[in-house]
């Protein structure tokens, strides 16, 4: 006798295979300091940090409905906190990175209380105003070089590790670690009760409200956590650069425009989208960057076309076509045929 049984699981073959490949890829990436050249490692570090920024922006815009064009506020803030904590307080750079995350969360509280008064698109421009306030404020701090910025003193750089080679390896591992922490944090958050609530809000704010989900608090929490992790990423970015200035730290193009393009092209509102988007962005940049402004215009045009024609981005297209999900968030029902139960 054969009966059909249905089982419900999150996992799928694709997801299990992705896990296996992911672990292998991760081992190869961790070993990069032993096989990759300096330039490649720098490029990969930058890629990981962009991946972190993109995943965080995607969490806010794609899931929490908080579209920010001012995340450069926290990138720059994190960078400046790294410099301030190491130079003025004598903290070890690693401790300073953690401090930057903490301070990022703290400063985000009053900021959120103010800009959460703005709705929708006006919220977006409000975040930009905040970033400008941060930029102008840090330009006023002469101890950090004012408008022209400052470099990380040699002594502090040396405190990371004695030799340049191990410094570069550590810096690379930090970037890789940040990307893994952020992607995992976003993924685990979305699987949690609060994360599910977030998806419910995105899909139907009214219905979510009637289910008793406190929308404001959930969004507030997302904003604060995102700010902390963005500040951490910002600290790591400027730990790589070793030099900071207000214009570089709070650049809307570098830390927001590119990040938005990555997420839109890869697939907004999916965990996989920012990963795909980051790879495409870097592939395009490495091949077309010589074109300068034309490259940026092409990027803008591609983002517009994707938004209009395939609003779920490249990953959305792949997922619809092959029913794939590498980071399983939804549950799927499976039919098992079993003998004689």
């Amino acid at each position: 006798m054969t009966t059909s049984q249905y089982s419900v699981s999150r996992s799928s073959n694709a997801a299990r295979m992705a896990t296996v490949f992911g672990v292998i890829a991760l081992i190869i990436l961790i070993a990069a300091p032993y096989w990759a050249g300096r330039a490649d490692m720098r490029l990969m570090s930058e890629l990981f940090l962009y991946l972190a920024l993109a995943s965080l922006w995607n969490l806010m815009a794609g899931y929490a409905g908080l579209v920010s064009v001012g995340q450069q506020a926290y990138v720059g803030f994190g960078g400046y906190m790294l410099f301030a904590a190491t130079i003025f307080l004598g903290l070890h750079p690693m401790a300073a990175v953690a401090a930057a995350a903490l301070l990022g969360a703290l400063i985000a509280v009053p900021v959120a209380l103010l800009i959460f008064r703005l709705r929708g698109a006006y919220f977006a421009i409000g975040t930009w105003v905040m970033a400008e306030v941060f930029r102008l404020s840090f330009s006023q701090i002469s101890a950090l070089g004012g408008g022209s910025g400052t470099s990380l003193p040699v002594g502090i750089v040396r405190s990371i590790a004695a030799s340049r080679q191990s410094r570069e390896a550590i810096s690379y591992w930090l970037a890789l670690g940040a990307a893994i922490i952020v992607v995992l944090a976003v993924y685990l958050f979305l699987r949690s009760r609060r994360g599910l609530a977030l998806t419910a809000i995105r899909d139907n704010e009214l219905a979510a409200q009637s289910l008793g989900i406190d929308i404001w608090r959930t969004k507030f929490l997302v904003y604060i956590v995102t700010a902390a992790l963005t500040a951490m990423t910002g600290a790591l970015i400027f730990l790589q650069k070793l030099r900071i200035s207000p214009d570089a730290a709070f650049s809307v193009n570098d830390w927001t425009a590119f990040v938005i393009f990555i997420v839109v092209i890869g697939g907004i509102g999916t965990v996989e989208g920012p990963i795909i988007g980051t790879l495409i962005f870097f592939a395009l940049r490495e091949t077309l960057a010589d074109l300068g402004t034309i490259y940026l215009m092409v990027l803008g045009a591609v983002a517009i076309i994707v938004m209009l024609k395939a609003p779920k981005g490249l990953w959305g297209l792949i997922r619809d076509r092959f029913d794939l999900q590498l980071f399983p968030l939804g549950y799927r029902v499976k039919k098992d045929d079993k003998e004689g139960t």
Partner: peptide, 30 residues
């Protein structure tokens, strides 16, 4: 372009005009 972005969803108009901003800025630079 912009009429295609109008609807209940906030993202398309915001991101399309953002893309437009980058295009205009770089075209002027060029």
């Amino acid at each position: 372009i912009l009429n295609q972005t109008l609807g209940d969803d906030l993202l398309p108009p915001l991101l399309v005009t953002f893309g437009l901003s980058v295009i205009i800025q770089n075209a002027l630079l060029e």
